[in-house]
Write a protein that binds this DNA or RNA. Structure first.
Lengths: 217, 217
DNA sequence: GGAAAACGGAGGAGATCTCTCCAGTTTCGT
DNA sequence: ACGAAACTGGAGAGATCTCCTCCGTTTTCC
């Protein structure tokens, strides 16, 4: 069903072999270079011509959709697992850690999660599943008195967006440097007597969505 | 001395008028669009031809240097003012607030501060003055027991880098939304009994420099 | 063995950006 | 008020990039 010819006769042997090579090469190239990588780069890595890539996949978004549907699904799985934890605060922290960890290893995934224009239906749908889960993770941690009460779930989203910046900057230097910044961020989310009230209202969902849509330097 | 012809005869009246128009237009355009703005855009805003811009300024970096030398100098001034505050923690917080505030209003300044490739000697020199000041602001706050003891000054730098991401994303939506994220970040820097030790060593200065040099999506 | 399917990769088309060139216009000293 | 020198505008050259198509050649499979 991932194949465009699924309903017709199967691909010729060489075609099927190349299709797999392209998918694997695309996985590698997008993970390294992000979704900005050209299909020429994918073709080169796969050892086929660009024409072969374009014959098999209508365009880059279609390829991204096939590749990343599953990976974004993993994020949903992580959220569900963390919702199942007894300790709500630990669940929230663990979610952040594992979600960021997953993205740390894949620049394409980072781009896609924080870049609503790209990808198609499946990726988009998966991303939308995240919102209620994150909101629930936060609400539980707040009810337990562990997370500061004035957080909104968009604050969690912005926190991961900011962490992605740290990852992008440091991935080539020290691949786990992000853990330090995550720890700092988590301490900022914790309920604490010293912390004053947050200034201003949080972003609402639409504002946050627009924020993701905004191109960053 | 800002003028390339300073040692020769003064510019003709129309040339000097256009030079001023270009500088003002460049300030506006770079503040809005960042240092990626084209000199064509600057010329259009100034109401002159591109040729006129290139006749007066050898290239974009020279123009950036003239424009932003002073603005980065303001950052140094802010750091000095905050170093003079009695309350070391308040000084650090105030520095972050004012430094980020200054950058919030000027996308070009954000780009330049966090993008060591661009700009020339003067901008570069001004940026280097920041490092010891930030280190001192942090050390004082740590000695006072207010900032967590395991922070390095590169953590402050990374914090502002991450905040810049938040600003870039939200500037067009709610221009002061960043204050909320700054408050969260500051709470993460505060010494606190709940906070465990930070994982891994901080970035050293060279690593942080390389991190800034790394292109971000 | 031959028709059909697939291949490769040069290159067209379209975006950008930076910066140059020169025919025409403006300034200013005398 | 006039002519030389200074200055102007903006088309467009040149350099990159990226996406995607086209078609002569090769491979598959009945």
């Amino acid at each position: 069903m991932a194949s465009p010819e699924a309903t017709d006769r199967p691909l010729r042997r060489d075609a099927e072999r190349n299709r797999q090579r392209i998918l694997e090469a695309a996985r590698e190239v997008f993970a390294e270079q992000g979704i900005g990588a050209t299909l020429d780069a994918v073709a080169a890595r796969a050892g086929v011509g660009v024409g072969t890539v374009y014959r098999r996949f209508p365009d880059k978004d279609a390829l991204l959709d096939i590749l990343f549907d599953e990976r974004i699904g993993e994020l949903v799985g992580i959220a569900d697992a963390c919702l199942a934890e007894d300790d709500a605060w630990a669940g929230l922290c663990r979610f952040l850690e594992r979600a960021v960890e997953l993205q740390a290893g894949d620049r394409g995934l980072r781009d896609l999660v924080h870049h609503p224009e790209r990808g198609r239906e499946r990726v988009r749908a998966a991303r939308e599943q995240m919102v209620p889960r994150i909101a629930e993770l936060l609400r539980r941690a707040q009810d337990a008195g562990a997370a500061r009460a004035d957080l909104a779930h968009t604050d969690i989203g912005m926190t991961t967006l900011m962490l992605v910046t740290a990852i992008d900057s440091t991935a080539g230097i020290r691949s786990d440097a992000w853990r330090r910044f995550l720890a700092l961020a988590i301490d900022g989310l914790r309920a604490s007597p010293e912390a004053g009230a947050l200034p201003g209202p949080p972003l609402d969902v639409d504002e946050f969505d627009e924020a993701l849509r905004t191109p960053r330097s």
